[in-house]
């Protein structure tokens, strides 16, 4: 899932200090599961902001709501009638949700209350570890299910590099070498030949926003409109 962490309170205070009526908008999906921007975190931020602003003699009127998702229009539409009552919106969704909220209400200042940190697994309650950089070209099939882009400090598609050191990475003895782990796993599976497969360079330069249209979901009638 997408994980995020709450922005420092001072940063949120600074971003929103000029607004007297603010709506805090949480997101009930990924950021709620990773305990960064769900209903509970919205309530905590609301309490913090209300107290912080009062202490600075700059009281604020706050509204709070948590949408099922901020990356879907049908849920954002729930704010159509109420967003106009506020001077600014603060979103606790991931970067995707924040942008979609801002797109829905282009005349309202929209501020982020979280920093989106990537795609991670849930190791324990409140403990998440990144596993995917959504590079758009998955090589897990030939790397024993270990992502070298995420787990290797250099993000090498072809490895290991000369810095691998008895299972650790050259950057730190505490950082496991991803390519060493890939080697061990492929060897255990009897698939060591996979490590010789060459992955062509990733076109990192193409950093335009990616669009995904799933097969079978094209709508020809809309193409004309």
């Amino acid at each position: 899932m997408i994980v995020a962490k709450r922005k420092p309170f001072d940063e949120i205070m600074d971003l929103t200090k000029d607004y007297k009526k603010i709506l805090l908008v949480g997101c009930g999906t990924c950021v709620a599961v990773c305990l960064a921007g769900g209903e509970k975190e919205v309530a905590v931020l609301a309490a913090e902001l209300e107290m912080g602003r009062r202490l600075q003699d700059n009281p604020v009127e706050l509204g709070s709501t948590t949408l099922e998702r901020q990356c879907d229009r049908e849920y954002l539409a729930q704010l159509d009638k109420t967003a106009g009552d506020y001077d600014a919106l603060v979103s606790m969704a991931c970067g995707v949700g924040i942008q979609f909220l801002a797109e829905r209400f282009p005349n309202k200042p929209v501020f982020p209350a979280v920093d989106t940190c990537g795609l991670a697994v849930n190791q324990d309650v409140g403990w998440y570890e990144e596993r995917c950089r959504s590079c758009g070209r998955c090589v897990l099939g030939i790397t024993g299910g270990i992502c070298p882009v995420t787990m290797c400090a250099k993000g090498l598609y072809n490895g290991p590099c000369g810095g691998t050191n008895k299972g650790s990475c050259e950057i730190s003895a505490d950082q496991p070498c991803a390519w060493n782990a890939i080697y061990d796993r492929l060897k255990a599976q009897g698939r060591l030949d996979c490590i010789l497969a060459f992955s062509p360079p990733q076109e990192w330069k193409d950093t335009t926003p990616r669009t995904l249209l799933q097969p079978g979901y094209k709508k020809p009638e809309k193409a004309k409109a």
Partner: peptide, 10 residues
């Protein structure tokens, strides 16, 4: 609690 002296927002 210093908040007690501070007026709330509307």
């Amino acid at each position: 609690n210093p908040l007690k002296k501070k007026p709330k927002g509307n």
